[in-house]
Design a protein around this nucleic acid. Sequence first.
DNA 1: AAATTTACCTGTAACGTTTCAGATTTTTAC
DNA 2: GTAAAAATCTGAAACGTTACAGGTAAATTT
Lengths: 353, 353
Amino acid sequence: MDEKSRRIPATAPAERPTLKTIAYMTGLGITTVSRALKDAPDIGSDTKERVRLVARQLGYQPNRAGVRLRTGKTNVIALVLSIEQELMGFTNQLVQGISEVLGGTQYHLVVTPHSFEKDQMVPIRYILDTGSADGVIISRIEPDDPRVRVMTERNLPFVTHGRTDMGIGHPFHDFDNEAYAYQAVEQLVKRGRKRIALLAPQSRFSYHIHSRIGFERGLVDFQATEVSMGRTTTETSLDEIRAYAERMSRLPEPPDGIISLSGSSSIAMIAGIEAAGRRLGKDVDLVSKQSAEFLNWIRPEILTVTEDVRHAGRELAKAVLARIDGVAPELLQSIDIPVWSAMGPTSRAARAE
Amino acid sequence: MDEKSRRIPATAPAERPTLKTIAYMTGLGITTVSRALKDAPDIGSDTKERVRLVARQLGYQPNRAGVRLRTGKTNVIALVLSIEQELMGFTNQLVQGISEVLGGTQYHLVVTPHSFEKDQMVPIRYILDTGSADGVIISRIEPDDPRVRVMTERNLPFVTHGRTDMGIGHPFHDFDNEAYAYQAVEQLVKRGRKRIALLAPQSRFSYHIHSRIGFERGLVDFQATEVSMGRTTTETSLDEIRAYAERMSRLPEPPDGIISLSGSSSIAMIAGIEAAGRRLGKDVDLVSKQSAEFLNWIRPEILTVTEDVRHAGRELAKAVLARIDGVAPELLQSIDIPVWSAMGPTSRAARAE
DNA sequence: AAATTTACCTGTAACGTTTCAGATTTTTAC
DNA sequence: GTAAAAATCTGAAACGTTACAGGTAAATTT
């Protein structure tokens, strides 16, 4: 009775409205309200209108736990990431792109990282066992990918950022790394380069193979030769990449063209090359893919292709949503082609030097 | 009866176990099982042991929707991000750090971006209205931040990446930008620099103020003068930063020292400085904060402080979890101090040139 | 006018969990 | 040997939702 001992303090938020609230306010049954909000055919149109009005007025939002418990629908998209992902803005862009699409829907984005390559399956199994997502987005795809196999078997909608080679028609979005590598060779040969090195990802990834194929096709078509990068990949530590690049640059016949699949690796490459006294754009040309526009700020001479990861995020999100809605996997496959950067504002800086 | 028309195909996953399953297998009541798994004091210790054994055997995981519906506990931490966040790996690192901590718990990480500064409150209100998270992590903090106010009022556990000045004791983790700016001036003066410019974030952010304070204190203590950056901030587009840096570098008395609060801005600064024909380390020194080690790969001469955003992520996650567990906000406040990079491997590259 | 159809609405049950208020058995106290 | 206390266990109810099986009244058919 005392003012201070009230259950509900003055600042308490209004109780969250439920179907019951709306049912009470409209004088209808809970079922009717539920069906009205779903635009079911057996509800009168004026009733629907009335229910919708009240629902809007109250700011009704369906309780996700209720829906999930009853129907199993989580309204969650899981983004499964390896923590070894590229540093330079990749995840950021991907998340932004996905969110752009999910923003207009009831879906939430849950980010689920896993530590090591061995644990690849852990988050997938967790999602399968607990039913904690309606759809999954994975990256760092391998040609024969166990994650793809198990999600296909268990009928969990998913999309891959990258392609597999498993004879399973699944949704994917990919960047055309084959075309990139091929065109990169072409660009280098056009600049008179003949001895070319390819810094590719680890061989287990699908895009290693794609870039190798494009690269080798390019070597043949444009008549250049390969200089080996040894065991160095884009996953190698930057220090080691730098060291390797320096050693390679001091060879009697060093490469005069280098193609890199990763922006951060390129930074280390440049350091190594220049440490050996070779000059970019003069002694050697570098072609690099990047996920954020930054290499040309540093060295305008670099030929760059910026993979639009944000766009990839949008495509991936749209694909997985469509898959959840039952669209055939074959209709949810897309590939981005490389776009070569025109020399940007920094080219002026270069000329001024 | 026909093999093909069975309800449960050979590949069907075993039904997910629930408390009911365990109750049935142990011959106990559902309540008992529930209490046993929570280690409640009114359950016999041998019963507990038995229940735990069966639960482990079955791979029992509590149904999150059930828990959430009944208790309101979501087991979700929401990371609220502005899409204008720094490009170079910031989000990535933050997410990784948070996940590292959440990985050992029942909590999931939901990433909730919002588009514009105007919409700052939208995701917060959504979370409050729908109870969709047990805790919230926000960044880009303002001295008087409406998000902090409303979450405090409504008693929603949260932690800020940055400090406020509202007289509200709330959990935060921050980088000591004041110390950074102060020490940056010191470093520059030590190198004989006297006319110093500060590229700070927009003035509405708390860390603008902190860096200004440290900067101005440094100017006084070490007897240097300021060269204005005009309206240029770390949020200005890279093109404009470059243009401003170039113009500034062509002044009759250009700055001989520049302090930058953002790694990507520094790239644009460098481009502008060099476009004007000035040389880093010779005519002008640059001090920069960065969230990933990359500036010294590019220009070894830059004095860098790398903010360990991954560590920040861990601290933020730990703080918000502790806050959920009722730990006093005042005990959940931490500040990282600047760590100046020793010249790394690239310094060799620099010397070799 | 009766039978049938149509249009519209609704109560019950269930999803998996926890809280509450007991219930039963065993132990302790006297 | 009985009363009280302690130790263990449990069913019912509720969180918010939707599927199901039906109910009622009006409109249509015959």
